[in-house]
Design a protein around this nucleic acid. Structure first.
Lengths: 205, 205
DNA sequence: CTCCGAAAGTGCAACGGTTGAACTAAATGA
DNA sequence: TCATTTAGTTCAACCGTTGCACTTTCGGAG
């Protein structure tokens, strides 16, 4: 959340952009603090704007919708997703790499620090945020499908690539209803793994 | 849409329930007419209520949200879905049966009558309605997973059943981005077909 | 038959997210 | 230095949705 040295902007920004970024950060901070304190649905937009000392109009100039106050569109997420496929270890299949990624980045790890866990719980405990997050992941379907096509040697337009991409991104959601989501995700990827193997003509490098 | 002899209520209703049903129908008719004329987003709730000569409060007593004015929760949809699995032809695999169902009931057929096509286009051309419809389908995941478990002999709690159910229901959406969605759906189910075959221990009847 | 309670419907006011319009103020760059 | 951007403001509204208090009307039990 606190973007301390996230390396997002090593480019020297002018006073203007710095102020803009500061305002944005102030809004996001205020929002997250209030949400964690009282719950997403119990905090209104106007209240957040007040806490950050801006007008609601300004708030919406920085974040298109309320959910975005919590879930920032992050280019890193997509980068990591594609990297998981492209830079997978030797001999690892594409579905296996995607499973690893899903387990690492989308299933709550009981160990992480408290701040992160609280954030995770906030998202997972609020339907609006859950849905928004899932929709964000799905927006990477096209890019992921393309990466899969390149890595597998299948024609880029092969719908099988899109299908694998979409299913892989949906797997965590499908697993959500089970007692043990991690196990369920693993099993879901078993399905994809076997199906993919049958579909792909042993072209993998 | 017009439930002329849909067989939904052969039970003799009292005057009261008949009036209620009539009001509901009047609202739905007015809404659909206006939506088709001017587009979903261009018609407000208050206007629909006026057209049906009821108050907005009454409208919301019949339909929980705006989208429901177009997409009625229909028990038949789930029944057909489960029947597709349970009453599939001899030797047909479960994924194959699901593919058939998806192609038949979820991909626009260019031939059908104009009224139906217009309705289909309205839904598919309005993001809010598309999403709502997809969410409705996904609500059948649990029931479908159970049916799959029964038919396949896998333990009912096996996440693979949920995974197959979820993926099958998501397939049409995954195919949406392609030029030829039908072909894309077919290919998506190839993936599931092969994966399922590998997972299932030849227990099928 | 009558009367009571349930349920349909009404009217109105409000809330919360979101948008538009008209405007101010500050930073930028020529 | 001046003109152009553009972040930010203020205010008012829209839209979906909900709550409240109230009326009407049907249905059933005494």
């Amino acid at each position: 959340m606190t973007d301390t040295e996230t390396g997002t902007a090593p480019a020297p920004m002018g006073r203007r952009e710095r102020k803009k970024a500061a305002t944005r950060q102030a809004i996001a901070d205020a929002a997250l603090r209030l949400f964690l304190e009282r719950g997403y649905d119990e905090v209104g937009i106007r209240e957040i704007a007040d806490a950050a000392d801006v007008s609601t109009t300004t708030l919406f100039k920085h974040f298109p919708v309320k959910e975005a106050l919590v879930l920032d569109e992050d280019a890193e997420h997509e980068a990591r997703l594609l990297a998981a496929v492209r830079e997978r270890s030797q001999g690892q299949s594409i579905p296996a790499a995607l499973r690893e990624h899903a387990l690492r980045y989308r299933m709550a790890a009981a160990d992480g620090d408290a701040r992160f866990t609280a954030f995770f719980d906030l998202v997972n405990g609020t339907p609006a945020l859950r849905d928004y997050a899932q929709a964000m992941w799905l927006r990477h379907t096209g890019a992921l499908a393309q990466a899969i096509a390149e890595e597998s040697g299948l024609p880029e337009a092969d719908p099988a690539c899109t299908a694998l991409a979409h299913f892989a991104l949906e797997a965590p959601r499908a697993a959500r209803s089970h007692e043990n989501p991690r196990e369920a995700v693993i099993r879901a990827f078993d399905l994809l793994e076997d199906g993919w193997q049958a579909l792909t003509p042993a072209t993998e490098s």
